[in-house]
Design a binder for these strands. Structure first.
Lengths: 227, 227
DNA sequence: CGTGACTATTTTGTCGACAATGTGCCGAAG
DNA sequence: CTTCGGCACATTGTCGACAAAATAGTCACG
């Protein structure tokens, strides 16, 4: 039963798609420095393809604001600024607050149960790493991702997952001034799930907004200290 | 003083940019029917260019959700659905509510004065057309556009202007089930400006949310009647 | 008569070459 | 010595041709 090419989607995956993902990953992780100027020919050779697919990947990254382009001049990786990061968190507050409100109404019983199970696994991880006091980003993303999906509003989901989250991840990787408040964040996640389970939309939104607002304040504090 | 090439930006305008704008306009206005399948070669010939720039324009339209693409199959103009339109208005409620709140804090005195002046011109137009009871879309967009800009939050502005508004315009053109409540909308605009001028962020957000919510209810009513 | 596989056509994906534009360097004039 | 102008280089924009994939039509078989 082990088919030669078992990937269900990679068959349909075009070369531009692969470059897009690889490049996005490289940018998010900081392998290519923020603000750095890059040439199309270099990148094409680096990823083993021609300039055609590469340009398509770049266009997509441009629309996600991960690269900036000026005609006839070239492209550069998006520059990171403290102000832009704060703006992003204000956006998240409004959008994920809305998501939490909708999730309280629209999430199915199974989805709520899944969210609870996710928190249970986090609790175990947390118990183990309570000393290091380091909240691994992936778990946090998982939680927020599920709440967003739970809104059952596809326009909202696409906006958050497809546009904003990559930028948030980029900042998380490259400004290490983050989280370090795992217990608090975990407790807040719990309260949010409680409110969703109680189908209390108002409370869910309020708790989510406060959760993200706290994260923002934490970031602002770190940024001020390190400058 | 009439220079030969007086355009400040079109010098730097690439062919793909022109196609992008032209195609976007054609889609928004409905010259190309929603849901219709289109071939790259046809479009390229239709716009008098080759497939290279056209594909770049299509990628951009795809990221704005105006066209949908499946690899190796082709592209089709985004389909319009009632559900998607309602989702869009919920998004606007959250985002423009946030914009109004920020505008109340961040708008300069000149910007507020400009907003007042805009409403004055609307009032004149409105007085003339009060019988036809038809609120021209451009004026409404102008108002919302200025409030968004007044937020002085570039991430928010780019999101609303660069991603959402074209879709809203598309629905406005193609579902004619709209507005027909010019006096009410105009009065709501006035109240929003009042709140902004008073630097009352809470009230500004509330009024903007209610304004958009009313528009949504109006649309829902129209949609129900025409089906 | 219906269903399945195969082939042919159409459409998209990819590539390399050419043209156009912007940038930086170099030299000459003030 | 500084500044303006022109030239050469490098990079991006555009184009046409080729390759790969999917759809649709057709034919044979049950």
């Amino acid at each position: 039963m082990s088919a030669p090419t078992l990937d269900p989607d990679s068959v349909r995956r075009t070369s531009a798609d692969r470059i897009f993902e690889a490049l996005q990953d490289a940018i998010v992780r900081g392998d290519i420095g923020a603000g750095e100027r890059v040439g199309e020919a270099d990148l094409a050779e680096r990823f083993g393809t021609s300039r055609g697919p590469l340009r398509e990947a770049l266009r997509r990254l441009e629309s996600r604001r991960l690269v900036e382009r000026t005609p006839h001049v070239g492209i550069r990786i998006a520059a990171l600024s403290h102000a832009a990061l704060i703006e992003l968190y204000f956006l998240r507050e409004a959008l994920e607050g809305m998501a939490a409100r909708l999730a309280a109404v629209n999430m199915t019983g199974d989805e709520v149960a899944g969210l609870r199970a996710l928190l249970a696994t986090h609790e175990q991880d947390e118990a183990l790493k309570s000393d290091t006091a380091y909240f691994q980003p992936e778990g946090d993303f998982d939680f927020h991702y599920r709440v967003i999906q739970g809104s059952h509003n596809s326009a909202l989901t696409q906006l958050l997952v497809g546009e904003l989250y990559h930028r948030v991840r980029m900042y998380r990787y490259q400004f290490s001034a983050y989280a370090n408040r795992p217990q608090k964040a975990f407790a807040e996640h719990q309260h949010i799930v409680d409110a969703i389970e109680a189908r209390d939309g108002d409370l869910s939104e309020m708790l989510m907004r406060r959760h993200i607002s706290s994260a923002r304040h934490n970031i602002e504090k770190h940024l001020k200290e390190n400058s």
